[in-house]
Design a protein around this nucleic acid. Structure first.
Length: 381
DNA sequence: AGGCGATTTCCTGCTT
DNA sequence: TAAGCAGGAAATCGCC
């Protein structure tokens, strides 16, 4: 089978799993034909030389710890190996590809081979082990002592948080060194990434949000610092239980947690969100206005989400309001975040003079005197 | 335990 | 008509 046919099949799978929104096109992953798209400046290649596991093209999945892959990353990764090994993609059970990285990493070698066949399963297993090892090695080699651990933990905790520089907590990276056998079906550290597989969560918003985060992660997060919300208690969000299922590997049953905010009405077709909602207060130092500011002060990296209208006066505009809202929602582990809700929170800032009103202009806001970190002088420019 | 801050959610009415 | 804005009300949840 021709390579482009394989790509076509997996692209279709991608399309089915990730119904796209028009506004997303500029920021979503390229799924195939990486040779041009993946070698551009969107992706950091600093680790490529260390990776002795084949890849001569670069994909976001390669830059991010497999534990943090979303479903699209998993699909891209499978796609890559299908193409490389000239595997007949028609033999693939696409249901078996529908999982995120945390789930993927919980699969044993046998499970991989059962799902993907002996040849491809072995290839994928090997690739995954190499990638996992690479990331664990990168991260753990300098923090072997508990003293170092503590220092680094404090350092990570004290870092200013933004969607661009926040990395995993030390706990979230150290746990990867647990032997695979102990990790199977015990990856609660990463369970927040799994909830998207729960029944009813496979909706446009979730996928959209995933894609967004993926592109952010793939394009300008530190590749070894995937977005973990920088929380000291992320692993508390959701307890899920996973079991092997021949059809789709994982059946997940999130334990119900109370969500924050006023209870949503259930009569608008949004019932399916409720089961997946997790409650989480914003991590210290991560407020909405800071999140917005951090997008703005990285103009080369914000993928056209927002722009400065008047840099000196702190006037800015949302270009992709819903996309920003989704990103914010993802940061807060809230898949039902919308621009409407985000903007309500923004309006509360008027009173506190973190923002100032800009009358008559849609999607335009201005930083107020109680905001900081965006002024050119502050940034030494 | 309770207050508080920072949202989150829903809502109505208005404007663009 | 849709999208966005404005702001009240109620609710949640981490922190102190």
């Amino acid at each position: 089978m021709a390579s482009n046919e394989l790509s076509h099949i997996l692209n279709n799978a991608n399309a089915n799993l990730y119904p796209s929104e028009p506004s997303l096109h500029t920021i979503s992953f390229p799924t195939t034909h990486r040779s041009t798209a993946f070698n551009d400046t969107h992706y950091c290649n600093n680790n490529n030389n260390n990776n002795n596991n084949i890849h001569n093209t670069v994909g976001p999945w390669q830059q991010v710890n497999p534990q943090f892959w979303n479903r699209r990353n998993v699909l891209d990764w499978i796609d890559f190996h299908v193409e490389e090994s000239k595997y007949d993609a028609t033999l693939l059970n696409l249901d078996c590809c529908n999982m995120d990285g945390a789930v993927l990493c919980s699969l044993s070698r046998d499970a991989m081979m059962a799902a993907f066949g002996r040849q491809l399963g072995e290839t994928l297993h090997q690739s995954l082990e190499n990638l996992k090892h690479k990331h664990v090695e990168d991260i753990t080699q300098n923090c072997m002592l508990s003293e170092t651990y503590e220092l680094l933990s404090n350092f990570l905790f004290d870092l200013p948080q933004s969607p661009f520089n926040e990395g995993p907590t030390l706990d979230s990276v150290i746990v990867q060194s647990i032997p695979t056998g102990n990790k199977e079906c015990d990856s609660s550290y990463f369970n927040e990434y799994k909830t998207q597989l729960t029944p009813g969560s496979d909706n446009g918003y979730e996928s959209y949000s995933e894609s967004l985060q993926s592109s952010i992660t793939g394009s300008f997060l530190n590749p070894s610092s995937p977005e973990s919300a920088g929380s000291d208690s992320d692993h508390e969000y959701t307890e899920t239980h996973c079991t092997y299922s021949p059809k789709c590997f994982i059946k997940q049953e999130p334990v119900e947690k109370k969500r924050r905010g006023r209870p949503p009405k259930l009569s608008r077709g949004s019932e399916h969100f409720v089961e997946n909602r997790k409650s989480k207060h914003a991590p210290r130092g991560t407020h909405l206005w800071e999140f917005i500011r951090d997008i703005l002060i990285h103009p080369e990296k914000n993928q056209g989400l927002m722009k400065w209208e008047d840099r000196r006066d702190g006037v800015f505009k949302f270009l992709k309001s819903e996309a920003v809202a989704q990103l914010w929602g993802q940061k807060k582990k809230n898949s039902s975040m919308t621009y409407e809700k985000l903007s309500r929170a923004m309006r509360y800032y008027y009173k506190r003079e973190i923002l100032e009103r800009v009358d008559g202009r849609r999607l335009v806001y201005k930083f107020g005197k109680n905001s900081s970190g965006w002024k050119l002088e502050e940034m030494g420019m």
